[in-house]
Design a binder for these strands. Structure first.
Length: 478
RNA sequence: UCCCUAGUAGCUCAGUUGGUUAGAGCGGCGGACUGUUAAUCCGUAGGUCGUAGGUUCAAGUCCUACCUGGGGAGCCA
């Protein structure tokens, strides 16, 4: 008999049909005559209720079935006598693949803290919460490829190992095959990277953008989607040492086109989640509502699905940096001295400022544009005012900056001048500058932090809970 | 990296101004139960109180250092 996924059984199974299912036990309940096994195979948040007659299978066999025991079950699909489900499987044959000793198996049929499950990240997929999160994560990855493919973008694989460290996006992880103890040294006493694998210092990438621009200025529209690495000692709910980033880069796009794309893209993904992941979203939403009950009324946030619909259905606010500074200066917290950091044209906005703009003032996603050039990267297009660059940051409630992007400086002379001002060695970037020397065009792009976006869609609070195997300072377990 | 906070049973926690034998719920185990919904009822086992020092007649409780977790900040996606 062909095995069916539980999702298929629940969606299309017919009463009276003989079916074979395989999965892991979530819970088992029982009385003298009959046992109920909630079986899950990962295909859906929902379990299939297995009814096992005690007399038929014997207490010996049923005793071996505990939480997380793996089973194959054949039986007849019947209308459920209980009220919790429409159909259930009347077992005629049970095969145990692997037992799970209930005294040693750490995931109990009860509510666990996310911290505890994080320490058991190898088994947390077996919980309803994490299976929901990772199904949604998959769906979003798939939707990203679908969105760009349908729009004629090409998926470009930029390198993981890179020799360029010019962008200054953060501390990098060195990639080396030199011995850690007594590496070969030069006459000056420095490590002699000429003897290293690549013959020069190399690192894990912090961004595929610069290589992405090479692709975009020939293929037209490209995107990257891959792992990115930052060796910053960041210990927050929003940072990882290894995370995934989506970086589209488009020839002939100016800043407004870039904003339009970012907004359409995010809304497409949210719509995709609402269309394809509703069961998982409902589960996560209920979970959140349970937690919200304990909070005072004014601290409760919008229900998850409502929040997603709200973002999908409303225009993002577009606001210049200069306007944002004015808004902040006229704000209540500013006038009452509630901000910890000063507000002045030229400063980088602190998260307290961003949160005020997004959560209090506008109360919807905000795209901030035209930042002072001194707080942004060298490659951003210099505006005519001589003070600002064509940068854009998309800010989301709770999460903060979810997208950072810009129109790029396409003028060779301006770009080189800016690199000199910022002490970026132009000779090492010769390959990047060639895009401006030969057939340069206006172009733009942005980077979306994948995990930050998944935080938003799932409503989870800690970025370590939306990536399968989080890499953070002092933690590379599993 | 900085600030705050926590570490007691498998999990979530309580443990009074330092004072006898460290408790509960859940989970586990044993039993009961005519179909349960993270079942219910009865019973039962389970602890080097994060680690190392120190103060004291006496430390889970006070002090110091370190380790680990959580929250916030910075950096950023």
């Amino acid at each position: 008999m062909k095995r069916l996924k539980i999702k298929e059984v629940l969606a299309g199974g017919q009463v009276g049909q003989q079916v074979l299912v395989k999965g892991w036990v979530r819970t088992k309940r029982g009385s003298k005559n009959v046992n109920f096994i909630a079986l899950n195979d990962g295909s859906t948040i929902h379990n299939l209720q297995i009814v096992a007659d005690v007399e038929k299978f014997g207490e010996e066999l049923l005793k071996e079935i505990n939480t997380s025991t793996s089973l194959a079950i054949t039986g007849e699909l019947v209308e459920s006598q209980g009220s919790g489900q429409a159909v259930e499987l009347n077992a005629s044959d049970i095969i145990i693949y692997g037992k799970a000793d209930p005294e040693k198996y750490p995931i109990q049929p009860k509510k666990h803290s996310l911290e505890f499950l994080r320490e058991n990240a190898h088994l947390r997929f077996r919980t309803a919460t994490f299976s929901a999160v990772f199904r949604i994560r998959h769906a979003m990855a798939f939707a990203i490829h679908k969105y760009f493919n349908d729009k004629g973008f090409y998926y470009l694989h930029t390198p993981i190992i890179t020799a360029s460290d010019a962008e200054g996006a953060g501390q990098m992880f060195r990639v080396s095959t030199l011995p850690a103890v007594n590496p070969p040294s030069t006459e000056e006493g420095d490590v002699d990277f000429a003897q290293d694998f690549f013959g020069r210092p190399t690192n894990l990438t912090v961004s595929g953008q610069l290589e992405g621009e090479l692709g975009a200025t020939a293929l037209g529209e490209i995107y990257t989607f891959g792992p990115t690495f930052r060796a910053e000692n960041s210990n927050t709910t929003r940072h990882l040492a290894e995370f995934w980033m989506i970086e589209p880069e488009m020839a002939f796009y100016e800043l407004t086109d870039n904003m339009d794309l970012a907004e359409e893209f995010l809304k497409y993904l949210i719509e995709y989640a609402l269309e394809n992941c509703l069961d998982d979203l409902k589960f996560l939403s209920n979970r959140l509502q349970q937690e919200e009950k304990d909070k005072p009324a004014d601290q409760r946030s919008m229900e998850l699905i409502e929040k997603l619909q709200f973002v999908r259905d409303n225009d993002f606010v577009r606001c210049t940096y200069t306007e944002a500074i004015d808004i902040l200066k006229n704000s209540k917290p500013y006038k009452k001295g509630k901000f910890q950091f000063p507000v002045e044209w030229g400063i980088d906005l602190q998260s307290e400022h961003e949160r005020y703009l997004v959560e209090k003032h506008f109360q919807k996603p905000v795209i901030l544009i035209n930042y002072p050039k001194d707080i942004k990267a060298f490659y951003m297009k210099q505006n005519d005012d001589g003070k600002t660059v064509a940068a854009m940051d998309v800010l989301f409630p709770q999460i903060g900056e979810i997208i950072g992007g810009s129109q790029r400086e396409e003028n060779y002379d301006k770009l080189v001048a800016r690199m000199e001002e910022m002490d970026i060695p132009a000779e090492e970037m010769w390959w990047y500058l060639d895009t401006r020397r030969f057939g340069t065009v206006p172009h733009a792009g942005f980077g979306l932090g994948f995990e930050r976006f998944i935080l938003f869609v799932t409503g989870m609070g800690n970025i370590r809970d939306v990536i399968a195997f989080p890499r953070t300072p002092k933690n590379a377990e599993f």
